[in-house]
Each structure stands twice: as C-alpha cells, then as structure tokens.
Computed example of a mutant assay.
Amino acid sequence: MRSAINTIRSLQLLTGISLLTMSACSSNDKKGSQASADTAILVTVSQPATDGQEGLNVSGRIEAGQTANISTRIMGYITRLNVKVGDPVSKGQLLVTIGNDDILAKRAQADAMIAEAEAGYSSAQKDYERFNNLYKQQSASAKELDNITLQYNSAKSRLDAAKQMRNEINATLSYTNLVAPFSGTVTQKLMDAGSMASPGMPILTIEQSGSYQVSAVVPENSISQVSQGAEVTVSVSAANKVIKGTVTQINQSSQFTGGQYLIKVRIPDSEKQGLLSGMYANILIPVKQSPQNTAGNDQVMVPLSCIEYKDQLTGLYTIGNNNTALLRWVRLGKTVGSQVEVLSGLAANEQFITSADGRLFNGATVKIK
C-alpha cells in the first residue's frame, strides 16, 4: 500500500517538472523571437534599373575650347620670358622677347635706302616737271621727254621698293615680340630665357579661359550612330561629376587617325567648376534600338554605392527567404555615371539592398522600411 502511494507521488512530481520545463521553453522562444524582431536592421530595397536604350561608350579627354602654341618665325636667343605656367594672360600681352639686334640693323639700312631713294625721286620729279613744260613750249624734243619720264619712273620704283623692304623687316621684327592671341592661361613652358628659339618650335602653350570640351574618337563601325547635336552623358571620375554634354563636331575623315573618327562634345559653362584640362572622361552616347531588338538587350544597372568589394570579387546584398541579408556575388560591366551594369548574378526583377541603418553581413536579420 505504501509503495503504491510513493509511486503516485513520483508521477505527480515528474508531471509538474515537465509542465514547468515546457512553460520555460515557450517563454524563452517568445523572448528570442521578440529580441530578433527588435534587432532587425532596417534596410531600403530597390530593383535594378533597366533601359531599352543602348549606349555607345567612348573615352576622351577634357580640353579647352581654344588652344594656341606660341612660336616664332625667326631664329634667335630668347632674351625675356615674362610668364610661367599657371599665369593668366590677357589678349595682346607681351609674353616672349627674342634678340633682334641684327633685324634692327637691317631696318636701319632700309631707312638709309629710303632716304637715298627719296632724294633721287625728288630730283627726278623736278626734271620731269621741267621737261614736261619745255615740251609743251616745243623747247624739248619727245625723245628727251621720254628719257626724263623713264628716269622719273625708275626713281619712283626704287623708292617704293625701299619702303616695301622696310615693311618686310618690320614684319620680321614683330616676330621677336610674341604676344598673347587671346585671354587665357599658360599651361606649358617649353623653353627658358637664353634658349635658342627656332621657327615653328613651340615656346609656350596657352589655353583659352572659358568653356571646356571633350575630345574623343569613335570607331568606324559606330560613327553612323552618332549625330551632331545629340545629348550625351559625360562622366569625369577625377572630379566625381556626371555632366550632360552636346556633340558639336564630328570629323568626316579618319585618314590620319587610323580608322577612328574624332568628335567634340561641349560641356556647359555651368558645369566647368572642378574640371581641369587633360582629365579623362567617359562619354555615353545614347543609341536607340529597334523594337524587335530591344527585347533581351535591357541593361541591368545598379548604383555604384551598393557594390561590395572583397579581394577580386564584387557583390551586393539581397534579401533571403527568412528576411536575412544575403551577399550575392555579381559580375560587373561598364560604368555610366553613378550606375554600373550587372552582367550576371542579378536578374532584372530581383530586389537588392540600397542602404541600411546598420552594418550588413551574411545572415543578418533585416526589415524593409
């Protein structure tokens, strides 16, 4: 009898312990679920941008709207060089002076020849007027008048020749004082004072202040897709800028560019802040596709800020089945401004995380805002 009572009490005790254990587990599960929901990282998601408009990508360099190489037509030593790289210059400002003592001596000779020719011309003119009057009075023969007229014309021609010689020397003398053809900035100084200047050899390079343009080349199999006046997207990574430009010039010949056609893209003056001549730029030229070729050719574009880099791999975060962050490795293509093309690893209808309120990692619990 006592043994049966002990058995019943033992069963009751075990039942109570089991109930307490199940209640505690249930409570812990509820607390764990609540804690997991409370610590979820808030994220913003988006879908890739697709564009049925194909783009032609070419590379180029920013340059000034007008550039001039300052050189001379004479040979001589540079006696003065009044500017240095980076100096602003105004139109007509004296930049370089070249030694001109020999030219000044030639001009002095020309002045002496003019003085001599003027004296001979004045004497011949008086003789011509005198014999012309005598001929009218029939006191001189026609032969005498012809001889005097010939002497007069010869003296006049010698005077004209001497004056033209001085004009030539003055023109040559002007090449010893080189001035700025327009207002701008000195971007290169290729010689210093004391160097020998040679005809056609640049001494300075000046770029015009004002607008910028991008010079690029387009392959011959794509030039037919570029039209003058087309609006293009110019990406300058060095300045972290994306600019809307306009095609202003298309070279019609590739004879000296190896099958590449030169184009010029104008950059608006309002966008020139932060740009410097010589910076590299990528140009995206929109190319409309026909409707039958549009399907299947859509580009999958995502923001560059979403890309994660690890060694040689690139990826972005997507959302898994259990509302967890999943790092998806992708293969990237061309970059257009702040967007980059995803060649593989992400479908056009898949969502990806664009921003998060905390640090993301594989398996992190996330919650869409």
Rank of each mutant, 00 (worst) to 15 (best):
E54I: 04
Q93W: 03
F131A: 09
M22E: 06
V83R: 10
V89E: 04
S46C: 01
L104T: 06
G55M: 02
Q47C: 04
A40G: 09
N28W: 14
A117R: 10
Y77T: 06
L94N: 10
V96E: 08
K31G: 03
A105M: 07
K30L: 07
M22L: 15
P48Q: 01
D111E: 11
L20W: 14
A108C: 08
T50R: 01
S23P: 00
A115W: 00
Q109G: 07
A108P: 05
D51S: 14
S123D: 15
I70G: 10
G99Y: 10
I70Q: 09
A140D: 06
A37D: 08
A68V: 15
E118R: 13
S71A: 11
M75L: 12
S46V: 01
L104A: 08
A117V: 12
S27I: 14
E63P: 00
A119S: 13
P48N: 01
A40M: 12
Q34C: 03
N57V: 01
A110M: 11
L20V: 15
D102L: 12
V43Y: 00
R61I: 06
S36I: 13
I62S: 00
G120W: 01
P48I: 02
N28G: 05
G76D: 14
N100A: 12
G65W: 07
T79N: 14
T79F: 08
K31S: 09
K84F: 11
T72F: 09
K31P: 04
A108Q: 15
Q138H: 12
G99L: 10
N82C: 07
A119H: 08
D51A: 09
G32K: 14
R61V: 06
Y121D: 12
D127Y: 09
L56S: 01
A117Y: 03
A64F: 09
P88C: 03
Q109K: 08
E118D: 12
N28S: 10
E54T: 12
L94F: 05
R73E: 15
I78R: 04
G55E: 03
N57F: 02
G99S: 11
S90G: 00
K84S: 13
L95S: 05
A115M: 02
K30R: 06
